[in-house]
């Protein structure tokens, strides 16, 4: 279990607050293409809503310098992520993670979809670890179910 992820982060987080997943003001300006037919502005807004505040830094490039791109992208050896006392997504059919701040505490949580069409979420704790997975439900307490075939 030693190599299971425990994310050390210096982010100062606000206390947990109630649910609303969308906090960022919506400026629905129509993106302008300029010479680019594949503009990203609309989704950039989504991304900043979804992955704030860490991803905002990456997406806006604040305080970082522009450099030429090369293909030498390097990652550390991957580590499995724990959620509570289990492995995140373990045993799910084709787990697919999405980072999203579900409870508006400034930390991204992880939502996992799977081939069966079910969604779970794991809230990120202040120390960067993740809590046990819970099923994502609708307003009536029913499991959100995309698997209707």
């Amino acid at each position: 279990m030693a190599n299971h992820l425990r994310i050390a982060r210096s982010l100062i987080c606000s206390p947990q607050t109630a649910t609303p997943p969308e906090r960022v003001a919506n400026d629905r300006k129509t993106p302008t293409a300029g010479s680019d037919s594949l503009s990203s502005r609309a989704i950039m807004k989504v991304a900043t809503q979804t992955l704030r505040p860490l991803a905002i830094l990456a997406l806006t490039g604040a305080a970082l310098t522009s450099h030429a791109f090369s293909q030498g992208i390097q990652f550390k050896e991957p580590v499995r992520i724990s959620a509570g006392d289990k492995m995140l997504g373990m045993g799910r059919m084709y787990p697919s993670p999405a980072a999203h701040d579900l409870n508006g505490d400034g930390r991204f949580d992880i939502v996992i979809g799977d081939l069966r069409g079910h969604l779970t979420f794991s809230l990120q704790n202040a120390d960067g670890t993740f809590a046990n997975e819970q099923k994502l439900k609708d307003a009536n307490g029913k499991i959100l179910d995309f698997g209707n075939w």
């Binding site: 991957p78 492995m87 787990p95």
Partner: peptide, 14 residues
Amino acid sequence: SFTWAYENITPRES
């Protein structure tokens, strides 16, 4: 199946 984390360690210039 699991969920993995890949930490990006690419030097900034590349």
